[in-house]
Design a protein around this nucleic acid. Structure first.
Length: 436
RNA sequence: GUGGCCGUAGCUCAGCUGGUAGAGCACUGGAUUGUGGCUCCAGGUGUCGCGGGUUCGAACCCCGUCGGUCACCCCA
């Protein structure tokens, strides 16, 4: 019988790796809380129409990457991104009528039926956030600055912020025409892929990796030349804020994103860690002032971003925390087993992370286990200790061992571990936290 | 969807364009009949991914297939 495997592009996160995930998630929750964002949880499954309307019918995500299915009479889709669902929830609960601005964050699995490669999976996790109801460039700048700080917390090397402005739909239409007009006489110089895109999605030619396309596009008109006054003022405001914050960024006139809903501010943050491979984009985001109206709601301006958790893990310089238990209770023989369980319970009630070696085995093997668990203290309970109502308390670090009544043992273990954790906490960031 | 590379022990891999499969790590036990980390010793019946072909003989060569991975497209 052949073993069943996980679905292609959908991965297990085993306990050895989960510490890294939790570390990133905790840092993210902290950042969000410091900036006044509150968590929202929306379903993984939404009506297919939501994504078609929010993301855009002609996008790659909607055209070929969605996990869509028909269940009874409903067309449903596993969410490929988080913004559409958040926007739907915001409108469905009429949150705009209850508070002028809302700051929401989310994290969770997203699904895209693409060919997997490094940092890109069919089920992947995004950390995202949205600000609803704030039209100004101030919150755009705050969001970008916040993300730079967050990536700094994660020790991501080589953080690079790219910003651009797409203007509004009218600007984009004008720009699209200008670009097509510029490129059509040069069509022969473009890659085959881009010749096709010239008709379907000309903006995408701008960020093509093909050298021929890059050359053809080098002197093409840029979006910023066509921004209207209000768009320009917004973009200038964003840049001024970032300059004054001292947040490093680069204006990239060729920055384009694959989702249709963006207006005005657009940004992308890359990392430089070798492990990232081709997927160096860690965060992508932008403003979508028109999307809520297009979904049938009021005209509420909004901005949001999404960060790929798997990519943050690849791109971060943080070492995974080790698995550790403070104390191991080592019973020798059947008679001591029950007593060992109750000692374990007592220790845990005092907040001591503790494992009882229920497999039994030799004392040597139990001490080895204590060692691999990272336990500092071991409570040894053999027949002679049991008979006398005492235990042996072994301190693996101090290499001492004492025989004492259980009450005293509990006190000593608590004292030593608490003292140890205090001294650890007062130290500056521990060495060895960074990857080699 | 397209292309490159790779499938050998739990993991990382070696295996000379053909002669019947190895190392390190991990794990377990022992040296120490109830005392860890270091050291030493011992412990492997592995569909060599699968199917077919060539050959006296295939982990190795050929064809097919499945899986993985990296990259493209696109994206987080």
């Amino acid at each position: 019988m052949t073993l069943l495997r996980a679905v292609k592009g959908m991965n297990d996160v085993l306990p050895d790796e989960i510490g890294s995930w939790q570390r990133v998630e905790a840092a993210y929750a902290r950042t969000m809380s410091l900036h006044g964002f509150r968590e929202v949880r929306t379903p993984c499954v939404e009506p297919t129409g939501l994504f078609v309307r929010a993301i855009g019918e002609a996008t790659d995500v909607v055209e070929k990457e969605m996990y869509s299915f028909r269940h009874h009479d409903e067309d449903l889709t596993l969410r490929p991104e988080g913004t559409a669902g958040a926007a739907r929830a915001y409108l469905e609960h009429a949150v705009h009528a209850k508070e002028p601005t809302s700051r929401w964050w989310y994290s969770g699995p997203m699904f895209r039926a693409e060919r997997p490669q490094r940092g890109r999976y069919r089920q992947f996790s995004q950390l995202g956030a949205e600000i609803f109801g704030d039209p100004g460039p101030g919150c755009d700048a705050e969001m970008i600055d916040m993300l730079v700080g967050f990536l700094g917390d994660l020790r991501v090397p080589g953080v690079e912020v790219l910003v651009n402005s797409l203007g509004g739909p009218a600007t984009r239409a004008r720009y699209r025409d200008a670009l097509v007009q510029y490129l059509t006489p040069r069509a022969a110089e473009l890659s085959a892929e881009s010749q096709r895109r010239l008709a379907t999605n000309p903006l995408r030619i701008l960020d093509s990796k093909d050298a021929r396309d890059q050359a053809a596009v080098r002197d093409a008109p840029t979006m910023s030349e066509l921004l209207d006054d209000a768009d320009r003022a917004h973009f200038d405001g964003l840049r001024r804020h970032l300059d004054e914050l001292g947040t490093p960024y680069r204006v990239d006139a060729r920055l384009v994103r694959g989702l249709d809903y963006y207006t005005r501010t657009l940004f992308e943050i890359k990392g430089a860690h070798d492990a990232l491979g081709a997927g160096s984009t860690l965060v992508g985001g932008g403003r979508y002032d028109l999307m809520l109206a297009e979904l049938g709601g009021p005209q509420v301006p909004a901005i949001g971003f999404a960060a790929g958790l798997e990519r943050l893990l690849l791109g971060s310089g943080l070492a995974p925390p080790g698995h550790a238990v403070d104390t191991l209770v080592a019973p020798l023989g059947e008679a001591a087993a029950s007593r060992a369980l109750s000692i374990g319970r007592e220790l845990r009630r005092k907040g001591i992370r503790c494992e009882v070696d229920t497999r039994g085995g030799s004392l040597k093997s139990q001490l080895r286990r204590a060692n691999t668990l990272g336990a500092r203290m071991v409570v040894i309970l053999g027949d002679s200790e049991l008979a006398e109502g005492v235990v042996q308390v072994k301190d693996l670090e101090a290499r001492t061992q004492d025989r004492m009544p259980i009450e005293q043992a509990l006190r000593i273990i608590v004292d030593r571990l608490m003292a140890a954790s205090r001294s650890v906490d007062s130290r500056p960031p521990a060495p060895g936290q960074e990857k080699p």
